[in-house]
Design a protein around this nucleic acid. Structure first.
Length: 874
DNA sequence: AAATCCCGCCAGTTG
DNA sequence: CAACTGGCGGGATTT
């Protein structure tokens, strides 16, 4: 106890110190020492990191949590744990009061910063990081220290942020970071109990693993993709998809009939059956039962599974609670439901801080319901990573001649050192890096990564710079890193000012070679560069970027000026806002959400986007549920401008077959970047390189996730040129013809198709088994919510190193994975890859299992035993 | 009023 | 048996 208190005291002091940064104290020294340890980390990038966050905080309105949080993990890359220990040794602070003061203070300051804002600030809480921030306002805020801390300041989400910031998102395989619960608790100034909450959730994702009593090991996100993949598989096995649909329908029906008797909370026989079925799939856990099932860890897993199997990627709290109340019998108990919901909030908070999900609201006939949207990686299943890797191995996937693509020009990237540094320090979110997998040997990827890092930084780093201004940059004037940012939705005026005639030329020159620039249809010269006359190029900057490129053909003409104006205005407003406020809120883009047969494929034409945008407001007003499947409207919580959310556009509005297709590459994990590539314009090389996709007959441009993830990538293309052939290909498969934009984000686009990739793409030599070979899923059929299922052949699954229940992977497992798993493409981690050579077979994870039912056996002992076993197995 | 979710009691589990 | 875990739900805060 004594030690704990000491630790706490120390921590408090630090925090306080941060708040009062101006003062130089012993604490500072401590901090400095820490910094010293990881000095290399404190590079400009880091500064940047810090820098940006504050801004974000200051910013008032729409906030994209996901976006912001993203940097957090990077903060203190090095293992802080130790740090805390030392302080512990020397108790200089007397701080019971300080603590109190501190807690009171920090919240206050934060509150000021963002007033109504929530959560976001978390990032800044980091003592080390915040120092700078504080300088601005701390001084005056001291007087407010007395105020009692807002509840928000004590939120689990915030706490989790802090917790996460202490560890590197992608720890080196060699470095094992141990987490002492006591230490963590004391350093974070919270009770142990809270740490358990966090750790349990993290453990469910294998971000940490329990080593021993009071001891956890930080695994980082290195294996997150695999974990998610596994969870997805498990979720499918559990028939969660079915359950989700079931509940959705039920709710629907209920809403219509208002015959909501007890059904609300109860599970009908049908559901029970489903539950049991799913249970059957996981015999191993069925017996384990209750306690285990109730555990936060299990719940977390299941919760995540729900997202992973969901086509919409949006799960309402209610639904989750219902589904997670395994015990169908007592599910009727309202109190149980309430408890479950409480727990879900706990989990959601952690997942939110991990930027895997975010809060949204689903509007149904019955009203608005709280829900969460998965914003994490979605293509892990498809393992774009692996795919990327394979692809990347080949020279430059992009042919220079191709208009659409990244180009060697990237090689021009600044000095290696600089780049490297940047990359290393480039803030990386857990999510962002998820899908990234860069083969160290792959220059292309590396370049992309570098560029990405740089560009990203440039953009974010220079928030103050008028975006428009930056947008005007051309390849030439920007130098090696031409980066043009355009305020979203095409604003004719903006474009003009930004990309006047010349831009086209410049674009031309760099066409397909550089990420950037946008040319609008408004001010373009016909025939220019293979662009269609009306081909709009839009680059949507910001942390949350939605990239659109190319356009369709004449359809645009049809587009009434009205629609253009509509969205133009709306967006113009935003762009202005951005300019002045440096608003980092996500650009608002509304995309049609059609999910017919191939909800997973996001192929659409620019015109669709535009139209959808034009309809944005309309939809807002009359949210008619026109879609077959989705009746709900999802609204980003607290975000006025949710990115491609659920505003649907009447399907009839578009004519798929005639439009140029764009491949939407989900970037869920990529800091909100979204990419669209003209399918028709896809360079053959790329397409072909994307074996599976190609085989699927999906014309598309696959861009290394590396590049995509790191920064907004723009790909111009010869829109009409190649249209014919590819479009044909698409047309052959109806599924792909749909303009599907999952609401929200759930693009499973590639994923849907790629889900099967794992099977297709041998990730490791070992995987090169016959069945591992790429097997195109029967094209169109692969679509649909269920397409995700059966992605991975069982053959690939190896449970060897896993625990029986899969709950707690052994350490060995982690180690193994860390070494072998495809690593993140994150710039940061990219360099590590060299050492971490191989990837691990995804299949290694046994489907889990958590079983739903078996509530009884409530023997805690069994559970415990299991845990013990798990640990022991390590 | 509903949505959130902090807080910490308290009981099972562990070493 | 003390310490570790973590289920649970009252009730405070926020929305």
């Amino acid at each position: 106890m004594g030690t704990m208190k000491k630790e706490m005291e120390v921590m408090n002091c630090l925090t306080l110190n941060d708040l009062v940064s101006t003062k130089k104290t012993k604490v500072d020294d401590v901090i400095d020492d820490r910094s010293a340890q990881k000095s290399f980390l404190f590079t400009k990038e880091n500064v940047f990191d810090r820098y940006i966050s504050p801004r974000a905080l200051l910013k008032a309105e729409p906030i994209d949590l996901s976006k912001q949080k993203y940097f957090i993990p990077e903060r203190s890359p090095v293992t802080p744990v130790k740090i805390v220990d030392r302080p512990q040794a020397d108790p200089w602070t007397p701080t019971a009061n300080l603590k109190i003061l501190m807690s009171a203070a920090s919240p206050e300051i934060r509150d000021r910063e963002k007033k109504k804002e929530l959560f976001r600030p978390i990032e800044n809480n980091e003592p080390e990081d915040t120092a700078q921030d504080f300088q601005f306002e701390v001084a005056d805020d001291l007087d407010e220290l007395e105020k009692r801390p807002s509840r928000k300041q004590k939120s689990l989400g915030l706490l989790c942020q802090k917790f996460l910031s202490r560890y590197p998102s992608h720890p080196m395989a060699t470095e094992k970071t141990n987490i002492s619960l006591d230490e963590a608790a004391s350093s974070l100034g919270v009770e142990r109990r809270r740490i358990y909450d966090i750790v349990n959730v993290l453990e469910s994702l294998h971000l940490v693993s329990r080593v021993a009593k009071n001891q956890y090991c930080w695994n980082g996100q290195s294996n997150l993709n695999e974990t998610l993949k596994r969870l997805q598989i498990d979720g499918e096995k559990q028939k969660y998809g079915v359950l989700i649909n079931h509940f959705q329908h039920k709710d629907h029906a209920m809403a219509n009939k208002c015959e909501k008797q007890n059904k609300d909370l109860s599970v009908d026989s049908q559901t029970v059956g489903l539950l049991e079925l799913s249970e059957a799939d996981c015999p191993s856990e069925s017996s384990a039962s209750s306690r285990k099932d109730k555990s936060l860890r299990i719940m977390s897993k299941k919760f995540v599974m729900l997202f992973l199997v969901s086509t919409s990627k949006i799960i309402t709290l209610e639904m989750a609670a219902k589904i997670l109340i395994e015990e169908s019998q007592d599910s009727t108990d309202h109190s149980k439901f309430k408890t479950k919901v409480r727990r879900l909030y706990d989990i959601a908070n952690v997942l939110t801080s991990l930027r895997l999900i975010k809060k949204v609201h689903v509007t149904e006939e019955r009203g608005r319901k709280p829900a969460f949207k998965w914003i994490g990686p979605v293509d892990f299943g498809a393992d774009s990573d692996e795919t990327m890797e394979v692809t990347s191995t080949t020279p430059s996937p992009v042919s220079e001649r191709d208009s659409c693509s990244i180009h060697p020009s990237f090689s021009k990237v600044p000095s290696n050192n600089t780049v490297k540094r940047k990359i290393c320090s480039e803030p990386i979110s857990l999510l962002k890096t998820q899908n990234v997998c860069i083969q160290s040997t792959d220059t292309y990827s590396s370049k992309m990564a570098h560029l990405a890092a740089i560009c990203r930084q440039e953009i974010e780093d220079d928030t103050k710079t008028d975006l428009i201004t930056s947008a005007s940059l051309t390849m030439e004037n920007v130098g090696p890193l031409p980066f043009c940012v355009m305020p979203v939705p095409v604003d004719p005026d903006c474009f003009k000012s930004v990309a006047p005639q010349g831009s086209c030329a410049s674009l031309k020159g760099i066409n397909g070679h550089i990420p950037i620039v946008a040319t609008s249809q408004f001010n373009r010269e016909p025939g220019n560069q293979g662009f269609l006359q009306n081909q709009p190029y839009v680059y949507l900057p910001s942390n949350s970027v939605f990239m659109l490129c190319g356009n369709s053909r004449q359809e645009l003409n049809n587009k009434s000026p009205i629609s253009e104006q509509k969205y133009t205005n709306e967006n113009l407003h935003q762009s202005k806002k951005r300019r002045t406020d440096v608003d980092e809120s996500p650009l608002s883009l509304v995309l049609p959400k059609h999910r017919e047969k191939s909800p997973d494929n996001l192929v659409f034409d620019t015109s669709v986007l535009e139209k959808s945008q034009s309809l944005f407001e309309e939809n807002k007003k009359n949210r008619t549920a026109n879609t077959q499947n989705n009746v709900e409207h999802v609204t980003e919580a607290k975000e006025t401008n949710g990115l491609m959310d659920s505003n649907r556009v009447p399907q009839d509005t578009f004519r798929p077959s005639t439009l140029q297709q764009f491949l939407y590459i989900p970037s869920a994990g990529v800091n909100g970047l979204e990419f669209l590539f003209p399918a028709s314009g896809a360079p053959r090389d790329l397409v072909s390189s994307q074996g599976s996709l190609a085989s699927l007959g999906v014309p598309c441009v696959m861009v290394p996730s590396t590049a995509l993830q790191a920064y907004p990538f723009f790909c111009s293309q010869m829109a009409s040129n190649s249209l014919p052939s590819s479009s044909n290909g698409l047309s052959s498969s109806p599924g792909f013809m749909n303009y599907n934009i999952p609401h929200g984000t759930s693009p499973c686009p590639l994923i849907g198709n790629t889900t099967s990739l794992p099977a297709h793409k041998p990730e490791t030599p070992s995987d090169l088994s016959p069945n591992a070979s790429p097997v195109p899923v029967s094209g169109s059929s692969s679509v649909g919510s269920d397409c995700v299922q059966n992605a991975v052949p069982k053959s690939q699954k190896q449970k060897s190193s896993l625990h029986r229940d899969n709950e707690r992977p052994t350490e060995a497992f982690y180690q193994e994975n860390m070494l072998k798993s495809p690593t993140p493409l994150t710039p940061k981690s990219s360099h590590l890859i060299h050492t971490e050579t191989f990837f691990k077979t995804p299949g290694s994870l046994q489907p889990s299992s958590s079983t739903w039912k078996s509530k009884r056996t409530k023997t805690r002992s069994s559970f415990s035993a299991q845990r013990r076993l798990e640990i022991a197995s390590d």
